[in-house]
Design a binder for these strands. Structure first.
Lengths: 278, 278
DNA sequence: CGAAAGGTTGACAATGCTCAACAACTGTGG
DNA sequence: CCACAGTTGTTGAGCATTGTCAACCTTTCG
C-alpha cells in the first residue's frame, strides 16, 4: 500500500465559498449571509491513489466531492481489503462516521479528486442553529442507509449476473443524476474493486462482463461501458430486487418500463428468497 | 400472509412516561420537565406475527422496543421475503425511514412485543429545540449504519460457517448488552429467518448449527443456543472481519482474546478478500 | 521499449443450493 | 389427555455457480 505514504495531504487552504457548486451542503455552511462562517470549509485535492483519511483516524470533518471519485474501504491486518462504497461528485464522504469518534473506513481517491472539507465542529455548531442543515444531514444519512440496504439485499439474494447488472444500473443512475450519459460511461474503478464491492472475485466480474457483451446487452471496452439494452438489463436486475434504490444525488429517476425479458440468462439458479406462507 | 390482516393494531393509548425504561430516547421526549410533551409517545402492543408498519406506509412515527423482538423485512411482488434486520429491546425501529416519507420495509413482531411509539412530528419538533435529542438520533442512525456495514462485509466475504458464527456472536453481544447471559440464550427467529438475514438457505443454517454442535463449539436445542467455546467461535468469526461491530445497545464489549483456533473447519475456501499491493 | 498493472479466459474443485424425505415440536380440538 | 395437523427443523444426494489457480493478453507509463 504505497499510497498510504501519501495520505493526509494538506488542503490548499483556499476557502471555496465562491467556486463551490455543492448547493445542498454549502447552502448551510458557506452561503450563510454574514461573518462567522469563514474558513469553515476548504478545498482538498487528492491525486489518484491518495487517501483522504484512514480507518481509526479521529473524525475531524466531512467531505463533499466536487470532482472525482472516491472509494471507501476496510482492511484486514493481513492486507486484504473490501470496498464498502463508491462516492461521486455531490456525495458526502465520511457520513457513516458522523456520530463516531473514529472513521470506520479508509477513503481513497480513484482519480484526481477535489473535495470540500467541512469541519465537524463547525458543522455541528451550524447544524445546531440551523434545522435546515441538520435536516440535510439526516437526508444524506438516510440516503446512505437505503443504499446500504439495497446492497445488503443484493449480496444476500442475487447471482453474479444480477449483481453486475444491478451495479451497472446504479452507476448509470448516478451518472444520469449528475447530467451525464446513462447509456455510456467510464468506470473509474478496476474489476477487482467492483468485485470487492458486489461480493465477487475479479474473474467472475470479468466473465460476466464478457457474457453480457456476448448477449449484446452491453459493450465493454476497457473501462468504458455502453448499456445497449437497458430494458433487458433492468429486467435482469429487478427480478430479485424489491425496495427502490435511491440514487446518491437524491434525484428521483422516473421509473422505466418493467419489461420482462426472459430467456436471457444462460444459467441461473432459482430465486434464493424464501417463500412465506403462500 | 395472514398476519397482514392484523396489522396496524391500535395502540392502547396510554402514555408511557411513567413506566418507560428507555432512558436514551424517553429522555428527550417524555422526561421533558413541563407541559407540552404530553401524548408524544404511547405504548403499542403487538402479538407474535403482527405487523408494526408496512413497506410504503407513510412514516408517522419511530418505535422503541420495550420488550420483545421485531424483524424488518422486504418482499417481492411474488411473496418472497428477505429479513433486513432484527431488533431487540432498546432498539429503535423505523430509523432507516427517518428522513423519508414512506417506510422502506415491513416490521413484524417475532414474539409478543411492547413498544413506545414516538410520533415523527413531535420528535422532529422536540429535536429542533434539543440538540441532545438530535444527537441521540444521529448516534442511533450512525450505529445502524455501522451494523449495516458489518453485514455488508459479512455477506461479501464470509463462508456459511463464518456467517452463522458471526451471527451468533452478534446475538450474544446483544444479550450481554441487555444484561442477559451471552453464553446461553433463546433465539426468537426461525432458521429460515436467520438464513434470510445472513444470506443462506435454511438448510445450510441448519447444517451449520449441527456441524458447530458436532465440533463441540455450541449446543443446540431447538432455538436455545449455548456457546460452549466462545474463543474458538470468535477466532472463526474474526478471520475475515475487520471493522468492529458496534452492538445495538451502544455498549462497548471488552475485546476478548483473539485466540487462533485453527483446524476446526472441515472444509473452508481461502479468503475471498482481494489482496492489495503486498 | 520494457515492466508492471490490469484484464481475459480456461480447467477444475467445492461451497452452498435444490429437491426430497423424514423427524420433532406446537397447538388445537375432540 | 390424546390425537392429529401444521409448522419447523434435520439430514441426505446430486448438481452448478462461483472461487481458485494459472496462463496469457492488453494497456499504461516511466
Amino acid at each position: 500500500m504505497t499510497q498510504l505514504d501519501e495520505c493526509h495531504l494538506p488542503c490548499d487552504g483556499m476557502p471555496c465559498s465562491a467556486g463551490c457548486q455543492l448547493d445542498r451542503f454549502c447552502l448551510g455552511v458557506a452561503r450563510r449571509p454574514a461573518g462567522g462562517a469563514q474558513g469553515i470549509h476548504r478545498t482538498v485535492r487528492l491525486r489518484k491513489g491518495q487517501c483522504l483519511y484512514l480507518l481509526g483516524d479521529p473524525v475531524t470533518s466531512l467531505y463533499a466531492i466536487r470532482v472525482g471519485t472516491v472509494k471507501t474501504h476496510v482492511t484486514t491486518e493481513d492486507g486484504r481489503t473490501q470496498v464498502v462504497g463508491f462516492h461521486f461528485p455531490g456525495d458526502l464522504v465520511g457520513l457513516d462516521s458522523l456520530a463516531h469518534p473514529h472513521y470506520a473506513s479508509y477513503a481513497t481517491a480513484l482519480e484526481d479528486t477535489k473535495l470540500c472539507m467541512l469541519g465537524m465542529d463547525a458543522l455541528r455548531a451550524a447544524a445546531a442553529g440551523m434545522p435546515e442543515l441538520a435536516n440535510q444531514l439526516f437526508l444524506a444519512l438516510g440516503g446512505q442507509a437505503r443504499r446500504s440496504r439495497a446492497l445488503q439485499t443484493m449480496l444476500a439474494l442475487m447471482t453474479a449476473e444480477e449483481r453486475l447488472v444491478t451495479f451497472l444500473l446504479w452507476m448509470a443512475e448516478g451518472f444520469a443524476a449528475r447530467g451525464f450519459s446513462s447509456s455510456e460511461f467510464v468506470l473509474r474503478m478496476s474489476r477487482e474493486e467492483i468485485g470487492s464491492y458486489i461480493g465477487l472475485t475479479l474473474e467472475t466480474v470479468s466473465r460476466q462482463f464478457s457474457r453480457l457483451a456476448d448477449c449484446g446487452l452491453i459493450r465493454v471496452r476497457h473501462r468504458t461501458i455502453a448499456l445497449l439494452d437497458k430494458l433487458a438489463l433492468q429486467a435482469i436486475a429487478e427480478r430479485p430486487m424489491i425496495s427502490a434504490h435511491t440514487p446518491a444525488c437524491d434525484v428521483q429517476v422516473p421509473g422505466a418500463a418493467r419489461t420482462i425479458a426472459a430467456g436471457l440468462h444462460p444459467a441461473r439458479p432459482a430465486a434464493r428468497l424464501y417463500r412465506s406462507n403462500d
